[in-house]
Design a protein around this nucleic acid. Structure first.
Length: 610
RNA sequence: CGGGAUGUAGCGCAGCUUGGUAGCGCACUUCGUUCGGGACGAAGGGGCCGCAGGUUCGAAUCCUGUCAUCCCGACCA
């Protein structure tokens, strides 16, 4: 390929719309163009990158025995209603683009394909003899993101590889899950990416175990916590840790304490000398459901701890009444919300766990009882400070037994706190958690039987009885991965693609194309490289050398062959993009020098041929 | 959706406060000189100033509305 024929348009200035390096570089390098918010055209250079990534993904997926397929993007609402996700995906988070056809049937553009694939499985998979089976596709997904940003990082239309596995038993599911874990590690390594696998929340997809693959980069949207020894890693949404020990409260009979104007834990501690670990703080929130009245929540945490909203949402969903539908959102209760329900205001700065359900009596649309939950750091306290449920009054020396004499009034104790960097690890208390930022490029789930049960996807087992299929699902954000690679591999001058996913492996740059000698040598090198199976590009533009060098750096081709002054002597220069090392060599020696390096580099971080 | 900002040529920006009919750099076209790290000179082409109302003799500029884009929060590959 020749640069003059490549429709290459590079930009000298950073476009104002881009914030992070990878986004700026993809725009400047002529890889992408924005068509609308969160919707991008993949220009020819990027398409080559995407195809290389897809090639690696295909090879590794095929190696696990998975079958490639292609499912419809336009999906009937009915399927989603049967799985119970239609409301959550359209009304609640509204992430699904949906529309009506001329018959006024509801349709959605697939944000994911569990429903379709499960319906197919129900149709096709009848016997345990057909199992296990895995299917995958590489396809455009649609999600009406609340806030698309950072280019391909969070688009509304993006390319994803999604795979689904079906099993006759949980053990078989676990085997496929482990095989996918390995395949994923190979995929990211082959793409030249440093990625870490971390425990993750399963989110809206549901299911039990799940693991995310994070490309470590400062611009990452996720906070991940890992132990120093590398044996534990988790998304902060999911991470667990040992809390710092509480400072014991001087035992005393429970007493009221006047605390005028002290509404925050910080103020309370400063004025009265308490430690935050001696305080039980109370958060009141309300959970909205798709098909049930809103549920007020009363959540207790130890004063020094922060609420992990993901853990809370999971706990609330798990306790929702049958038929309540999807949990749509959890919001703090404010006096405005109370007024809208026809309820009296609450003294927010001095609430205690003993807050009576009576405050909800007569609510217009809410349930009239709190769902009471507490983090174990709070329930572990034997004596504590908390609000007295009256303005400017707190209780000192309170205890769960005294405040709530009936055990069934007490909150359920569970893990609701957000693990923090610096916390001690569960598996080894002498280890502490370290924080890093990551870009989620892959996520694997053990779904279990959630979808197969909802969609009645059953098979006949060995004993001859009907059983719901066990399922796993496995995603890779292909277009996001391309940008994550740029985020992890760039410098001041531009992109430094890992060779295995670079749009071209080598760019031949004649310093002066007008010089017939240089032109001739460059042309013959191009032919030689192409004949040797190298993805080579020739910059045949009649630009000055500086312009061509700058562009080559910007678009990030791993190797540059410069044909210049010494072309007359058959001498050329070989420059490695990453690190800029330069060596002079005879043109005749190019393949001999370059091919072994390319062979190694094509394996990415795997270090050996795939 | 809440909070913040910005819309002027393909890209980056100035002009707006103090209304008088649009400018700079890059990119593009032609010619010449240059030619190993985004050259120089000359000549050119390209903009209903996001859109719609209003105020005014006159609006990129003032007012109202609207749309779009970006940033911070909730969502996710």
């Amino acid at each position: 390929m020749r640069v003059s024929r490549l429709m290459l348009v590079t930009l000298r200035d950073d476009p104002a719309e881009a914030e992070i390096s990878s986004h700026k570089l993809l725009l400047r390098g002529g890889y992408i163009r924005r068509i609308s918010s969160g919707i991008y055209a993949y220009l020819p250079l990027l398409w080559r990158v995407l195809q290389k990534i897809e090639g690696i993904v295909r090879q590794e997926m095929n190696a696990t025995g998975a079958l490639e397929t292609l499912l419809p993007q336009l999906q009937p609402a009915e399927l989603w209603q049967r799985s119970g996700r239609w409301d959550g995906y359209t009304a609640g988070e509204g992430i699904m683009f949906h529309l009506q056809d001329r018959q006024e049937r509801q349709l959605g553009l697939g944000p994911t394909h569990e429903e379709v694939i499960t319906a197919l499985a129900a149709d096709l998979l009848r016997s345990y003899r057909q199992l296990p089976v895995s299917l995958y596709q590489i396809q455009t997904k649609f999600r009406d993101e609340i806030r698309p940003r950072f280019g391909l990082m969070r688009g509304r239309e993006f390319i994803m590889k999604d795979a689904y596995s079906f099993h006759a038993s949980e053990e078989s599911l676990k085997q496929s899950y482990a095989a996918m874990d390995l395949a994923y590690r190979r995929i990211f390594a082959r793409c030249g990416l440093r990625a870490v696998a971390v425990e993750a929340d399963s989110g809206a997809i549901g299911g039990s175990a799940s693991q995310e693959f994070m490309v470590t980069a400062e611009a990452g949207e996720d906070l991940i916590l890992t132990s120093e020894d590398g044996r534990y890693g988790a998304n902060q949404e999911r991470a667990v840790s040992l809390p710092p020990p509480a400072v014991e409260l001087q035992q005393s009979p429970c007493q009221e304490l006047a605390t005028p104007g002290l509404a925050s834990i910080e103020d309370l501690c400063r004025v009265h000398g308490f430690d935050p670990t001696q305080i039980v703080k109370v958060l009141v929130l309300v959970a909205r459901f798709a098909a049930a009245p809103a549920q007020p929540l009363l959540v207790c945490l130890r004063g020094d701890q922060q609420l992990n909203e993901v853990k809370l949402a999971n706990a609330v969903s798990a306790r929702a009444a049958e038929g309540a539908g999807a949990l749509l959102e959890i919001t703090p209760i404010s006096n405005e919300l109370l007024a809208a329900e026809g309820l009296a205001p609450l003294p927010f700065g001095s609430l205690g766990p003993q807050l009576d359900d009576g405050v909800l009596a007569g609510a217009r649309s809410w349930q009239q009882r709190f769902l009471r939950l507490a983090d174990t750091t709070a329930t572990d306290l034997t004596g504590f400070v908390c609000g007295a449920c009256r303005s400017d009054q707190h209780l000192v020396g309170a205890s769960w037994e005294a405040l709530l004499p009936q055990p069934d009034q007490r909150p359920q104790s569970l893990d609701l706190r957000a693990a923090q960097p610096g916390d001690r690890c569960l598996h080894a208390p002498e280890q502490t958690l370290l924080a890093a930022r990551g870009i989620e490029v892959g996520h694997i789930f053990q779904l279990g039987r959630k979808y197969s049960q909802a969609l009645e996807a059953t098979f006949t087992n060995e004993a001859g009885s009907e059983e719901a299929l066990w399922m796993g699902c496995y995603g890779i954000g292909v277009s996001r991965l391309a940008q994550a690679a740029v985020e992890q591999h760039h410098d001041e001058q531009g992109i430094c693609w890992p060779t295995s996913i670079a749009p071209f492996e080598v760019i031949v740059v004649p310093a002066n194309i007008e010089d017939p000698l240089q032109q001739q040598l460059a042309e013959s090198l191009l032919t030689e490289l192409l004949d040797a199976g190298v993805d080579a590009l020739l910059d045949d533009r009649s630009e000055r050398a500086g312009v061509k060098f700058k562009d080559a750096d910007l678009i990030g081709i791993p190797w540059r062959v410069v044909v210049g002054r010494d072309a007359a002597n058959g001498q050329i220069e070989l420059v490695q993009r990453q690190g800029r090392s330069t060596e002079a060599l005879a043109a005749s020696a190019l393949l001999e020098v370059l091919l072994p390096r390319l062979t190694t580099e094509r394996c990415g971080l795997l270090g050996e041929p795939a």
